[in-house]
Amino acid sequence: MSTDTATTDATALEDRTFLDRLRSSQFLSDLLSNRLALVGLTIIIGMVLIAIFARFSYDLGALRSSQLGTVSDRLAPGWTGTGAVDQHIFGTDASGRDIYKRTLYGAWIAIKYGTVTVAASTFLGVALGIIAAYYSDLTDNVIMRTMDVLLAFPSLLLALALVAIFGAGLWKVVIALTLVYTPRFARVVRGAALKVLEDEYIEATEALGAKDPRVLARHVFPNTLAPVTVQSTLNYGLAIIDFAALSFLGFGAAPGMPSWGLMLSNGVANGLLTGKWWMSLFPGLFLAVLVLGFNLLGDGMRDALDPRMRETVD
């Protein structure tokens, strides 16, 4: 076999990589023709804009400090006509703080920490998954059996156990959740990478003298991108839910932080039985809508990447 044909073969096979599919825009046109995915994307972009707006418009210190004395606590939203001041359109919480501003700022906290969590677990999972698939039985076994142990726990429980080790705090929760999600990525990536490695063209590139890192970076990695992107998007929603859950249980955000989880826990503690519905409604609604956005987009991406899903029943 001449060097020329081998190179052409490798290039031809590379056509199937995720990036090429993106460029050939079959993927993009499929995704864009999926109305639900577009709705999801719109929600996410809207939330990101809200988050950035809140981050630069409101002072975190002011959002955290109690306003008791200047503003009454647990005021219903002004538009309900039950006597609240008009400027609090989402009402106020048990410390007299404005729920509208806090809910908007909550988007910044959710997206910021959610992004770090997803990025970190994606990176770790991809690295571990590719290494496990490429190297010998021993390396593979050590990595994947460790992942099995982590997967043996229900996810929220593992997060709680890790928080028991690390202690409470936003960044500690990020580390805990990163460790919780990494095994899922590692599994998906290892599976995809093994498929690529079985293909002969890897053998061909190796025969041509390509070194390990080059094979992994140029050939194996691009082929795992498709499943990883879907997994990341769907995991984003989960990360935001779990992140807020840990704050809700009292292990994430410090008291007073305008995090959605903490706001919901305040709403449950101070407003549930007395019917102060606005304390729970707004932060939870924003949280659910953002997560729905990621799930809609993730679903659409999966459909666009899996041609079988396009077939319809006649």
């Binding site: 929603g237 839910i241 807020a244 859950a245 809700f248 989880g261 919901l264 826990s265 709403g267 449950v268 549930l272 729970s280 409604l281 939870g284 609604l285 949280l287 659910a288 809508v289 997560v291 729905l292 799930n295 809609l296 679903d299």
Partner: peptide, 16 residues
């Protein structure tokens, strides 16, 4: 999809 997106610690309080 909405059912999956709504966290338990929000649907619970809303039901209450």
């Amino acid at each position: 999809l909405s059912g999956i997106s709504v966290p338990i610690y929000w649907s619970g309080p809303m039901l209450i």
